[in-house]
Computed example of a mutant assay.
Amino acid sequence: MIKLGKDIFSKIVSVAVAAVMVLTLLPGRSVSAADIDLSKKGSMTVIHHSADDEPLEGVKSRIYRVASVDASGKYTVLDEFSGCFSDSSFFNNGYDFDAWKSCVDGVKEYVKATNVKPYKEGVSDKQGKTYYEDLDLGVYLVISDNLVDKKFVHSFASFVYPVPLLERGKESEVMEWVYDVEVAPKKESVERIIDEEFVVYKRWSDSGYESNRPSEITVKIYCDSSVYKTVKLNSSNNWKYSWTYEPGHEWKLVETSTGNNYTASLSKSKDENKYTFVFTNTYNPPETPPGNPPEDPSEPVTPDLPSVLGAIRDLPEVLGARRLPQTGQLWWPLPILVLFGVFFIFKGIRKNSKA
Rank of each mutant, 00 (worst) to 15 (best):
F343E: 04
G138E: 02
Y245F: 10
A34Q: 10
A34C: 06
F343I: 10
W204Y: 06
K3V: 04
L26M: 13
K274Q: 07
S189K: 06
E121K: 13
T276H: 06
V123C: 02
D37L: 08
S124C: 10
S32V: 07
Y119H: 12
P162F: 00
S211T: 10
V17P: 01
Y228L: 15
K101N: 14
S39N: 15
V190F: 06
D98K: 14
N93T: 11
N92W: 07
K347H: 03
G341P: 03
K3F: 08
L165M: 14
E196T: 06
V199Q: 15
I194G: 07
R322V: 14
F85I: 08
P118V: 08
A71S: 11
G248A: 05
E182I: 01
S30F: 14
E171K: 15
N238K: 15
I349N: 12
D271Y: 07
S211W: 11
W239G: 09
V254W: 00
V59H: 03
Y131W: 07
L334H: 05
P162E: 03
I221T: 13
P118Y: 04
V22G: 13
E216C: 10
D304Y: 06
V148C: 03
K274M: 05
G208K: 09
S172V: 03
G94W: 02
S68W: 01
N212L: 03
L266V: 07
Y209V: 01
W239P: 08
K11T: 14
A34S: 13
T280I: 12
I336C: 01
K351W: 00
S172E: 03
D206L: 00
V31M: 12
L253T: 03
E196M: 09
S124Y: 13
L25C: 06
E176N: 12
V69Q: 10
V111E: 08
L23M: 15
V318L: 12
V153T: 12
D98R: 12
